[in-house]
Design a protein around this nucleic acid. Sequence first.
DNA 1: ATTAAAATTGTAATCGATTTCATGATTTTT
DNA 2: AAAAATCATGAAATCGATTACAATTTTAAT
Lengths: 329, 329
Amino acid sequence: MANIQEVARRAGVSSATVSRVLNNTTAVSAKTKFKVEKAIEELEYEPSMLGRNLRNSESRLLLVLIHTFSNPYYSEIINGIEDYSIANDYNILLCETDSNPQREIIFLNMVKNKLADGIISMNPTVDLEKLKALNENHSIIMCSDYYEDVSIPYVAIDNELAAYKAVKHLIKLGNEKIAFINFDDNMAYARKRREGYERALNEFNLPIRDEWMCKTDGLDFQDGVQAMRKLLQLEERPTAVFAVSDTIAIGALKELNVKGIKIPEEIAVVGFDNIGFSNMTNPTLSTVSQPKYEMGYKAANMLIESIKGSKADSVIMDHELIIRESTLK
Amino acid sequence: MANIQEVARRAGVSSATVSRVLNNTTAVSAKTKFKVEKAIEELEYEPSMLGRNLRNSESRLLLVLIHTFSNPYYSEIINGIEDYSIANDYNILLCETDSNPQREIIFLNMVKNKLADGIISMNPTVDLEKLKALNENHSIIMCSDYYEDVSIPYVAIDNELAAYKAVKHLIKLGNEKIAFINFDDNMAYARKRREGYERALNEFNLPIRDEWMCKTDGLDFQDGVQAMRKLLQLEERPTAVFAVSDTIAIGALKELNVKGIKIPEEIAVVGFDNIGFSNMTNPTLSTVSQPKYEMGYKAANMLIESIKGSKADSVIMDHELIIRESTLK
DNA sequence: ATTAAAATTGTAATCGATTTCATGATTTTT
DNA sequence: AAAAATCATGAAATCGATTACAATTTTAAT
């Protein structure tokens, strides 16, 4: 309630001195400091960030753009972002865009409007032109998704290699008919994973058949259920499925369970992301693990350095294939 | 980049007029309006929220406190909060406290510091004294959790009744030995659910045995796994389990599957919350559904009205018992 | 054509902090 | 004891908007 002027008046000093006590900038005599601190205490004064931010023209707020909170994949990344940010006196603002361009614009404008200092985008459906324009004068880092031919720095894994390894694992188990359930091929990560899938099949001279390339409408459990349902209706069923995300793979597992199909004997399944659930399914799900926490942590680090003025370089992190019951013979 | 003064200069008017065009407050002649809009366009001007907020002493930002993002229960509530907030020109800032009092204080201070206009707390472990103090002069709404004897308005369901119905359902199926896996009895919702559990047992003259009241260290899957493991070691095993959350119930299901125990024939399970994953488990999980989206929507509505100055009254919303395979004989 | 009323626009104060520059008070040096 | 250097503090400008009030212009009324 009280402002800096009232504190100054009560302490019998000027507001400049109060500010100095507040920020430990210039030396203030012990006696004055004591008076000021007493006044602050008595008035229960809390500095207004609005005044401070206006003057300093910074908000110490970071925006994190996500498509949806309901995908648990993001929560670990966010933990990493938060930990680094808080430790460096930044707070984060989580923004769910729902793939709605209007919402996206609101959030991007918050940076232009000085309400936030920078953006970590994990939002695959972002309006690329707007993002590029913003990137001219502001700090942006992409995390887990990215654009190959745009100069926005990113943190990601080698999606092509990870997918290649996952599919090769299925091949080594003796599978020759391997389906791929993908979501949106426009996303770099999705395209890369498809390329890895194709490379593995090509390397072993296995057919890439159109009806084994399934496209879903989203990344929800239900999308996996439906994709699997379609695959099961095919004349020639695959014996293994590689899904672009765990959520989809879990939906696929569910459908297989419902139909009484044995996993992995009849159909083996590999997912991607290693979300918490993937260890709770029946059978447990083989998947590709990304260092989610570290990716978030690093992204926040890159963003804050970039805000301070240094140029950030993209980073590729390690991944790991985790073999569980859904591919254990 | 450009500020309102530069726009004014370029348009040949005063900054006051630019502001009027920006906010549609007082009438501005068509000609002037055109000139100003042209200047805004040419300079790619975007108003600084910092200046605006300082002057208006509002941030149009709402804080949403959650313990952790990794519990999918919250994501639907957040969707409701977001939809209402965005529709009313507020943005929300999601704050994960991790039960860390220091983080909590940071977030509560954001309201004192005028960086945010109000709080929706879904944070069971919040420092109650601090929250009460803040509630004196600021707007706070509790959502899904609440404090009975504190004057902070809340949105919740009748937890006692819901638990009573869930346990009665288990009794009707013929179960007489019913265990309860709970987390933290200090939370109002947890206490209420325990009371409902006890009321149902008492009504049917069934024993409430201490070893069937399990306490976990958290709400993660793994906590459910461990609780179930303990219950299975008992000399006299329960034939049914009521869990305080779906995450715990899902962990319990997992452990039962691992041990080869038939659900629901040997042990029936009921959860609480109806998270998306509860329909993907094997068997699917019976649970209590809360109108999560609506609760969030209503909480945001109450908060914004409260910020505008009207007094909010607590709201109890409907719930529903959803019967799935884990209790289907 | 003159005057009153209405519409438009500008001036300047304001929100709450930080910071440069100037000044006065102390301390140190000679 | 006088001069120089250091330290502590205050006055006032500033960040970028909004708005009460005043001034000016336009329109309407006589």
